[in-house]
């Protein structure tokens, strides 16, 4: 097993592209090291990306924030700007693992691990976040929503790595929220989850919304019908009921040791409703 610590994203992409065997990227390591220890993967090459410039930083950009791929949940939680603008993204990222894991775990790692139950992914998709990708042929931007391909898989091609995710600027009266269901209060994986990002107009009416579900399908689910049910409303009970129904209709979960189809479908709707109300309250407080 080779261990490399390149200084630039381009070098990292080259190393990954040129490796004939199995390569893994190491940032926080909270997934890959566990998988290696469990014997699930035995990489031939480990590329530690933490020496790449800016990869561990949060930068302001066009009124939004660019979050480096090696930024930990703990670091994110200490950034007042991101916390104020994207509280739902931060609360999602901070649900990954324990306090100790928070010191290492990254949102990009959470995304690239490809789990349908990843906590930060629904919140990033609700935020319309965009991943910046470096590959052997240069750099490209891709919506986070298009990164997951199914359990354990992403749409990234050989040699590509995500160097940052961009959270766009937000108008006044906008906020987001993320909720997940786990049987335990900590040290657990989402059985179902929901992220809602919405914008309220001056009258407190919802004028923009994105509703996203996690752990209820092979990929994260952006439920346009659920968003449509909220837009133009004050999230009155009928609007919320319509959104819940749209969420449940969009669920295509599996029965497994963590939950049943019926349970996941039912609870996804409950979480979406509760997240929408939290986002509305947060947005109202800001406007």
């Amino acid at each position: 097993m080779r261990y490399e610590r390149p200084q630039t994203a381009t070098q990292a992409a080259q190393l990954l592209a040129n490796e004939p065997g199995l390569a893994r990227i190491l940032a926080g390591g909270t997934d890959v090291l566990v998988q290696m220890k469990a014997g699930m993967v035995t990489p031939d090459l480990v590329v530690d990306i933490k020496k790449i410039a800016q990869i561990g930083n949060i930068q302001s950009e066009e009124g939004g924030y660019r979050i480096g791929a090696a930024v930990s949940g703990a670091q994110l939680g200490e950034h007042a700007g991101v916390c104020a603008q994207w509280p739902g993204v931060v609360e999602a990222a901070q649900l990954i693992g324990s306090t100790q894991v928070q010191g290492r775990a990254t949102m990009v790692g959470n995304l690239c691990n490809g789990s349908p139950a990843a906590d930060s992914v629904p919140a990033l998709v609700a935020a319309n976040a965009v991943a910046r990708i470096t590959g052997p042929n240069g750099t490209r931007d891709c919506p986070v929503a298009d990164i997951p391909a199914g359990p354990g898989r992403t749409t990234l091609t050989k040699g590509e790595l995500i160097t940052s995710v961009f959270l766009p600027a937000r108008p006044q009266g906008a906020a987001d929220a993320y909720l997940r269901f786990t049987p335990r209060t900590e040290m657990d994986i989402a059985v179902a989850s929901a992220a809602v990002s919405l914008t309220l107009d001056a009258q407190g009416r919802c004028c923009e919304a994105r509703v996203v579900l996690g752990a209820v399908a092979p990929r994260v689910v952006l439920v346009a019908e659920a968003a449509a049910a909220l837009i133009g409303t004050h999230l009155e009970p009928p609007a919320l009921d319509a959104m819940v129904a749209a969420c449940r209709a969009a669920c295509a979960p599996i029965d497994d040791k963590r939950g049943t189809v019926a349970f996941r479908t039912q609870v996804a709707g409950v979480l979406a409703k509760r997240a929408a109300v939290i986002a509305q309250t947060r947005a109202g407080a800001k406007s």
């Binding site: 209060t185 040791k257 963590r258």
Partner: peptide
């Protein structure tokens, strides 16, 4: 938790849910 194949599906503390302090 056993599958139909008779294999144990949750041989670890992630899916064998012992309560944690915050529970």
């Amino acid at each position: 938790i056993y599958g139909a194949d008779g294999r144990l599906q949750n041989a670890g503390f992630l899916d064998y849910r012992t309560p944690v302090a915050s529970d």
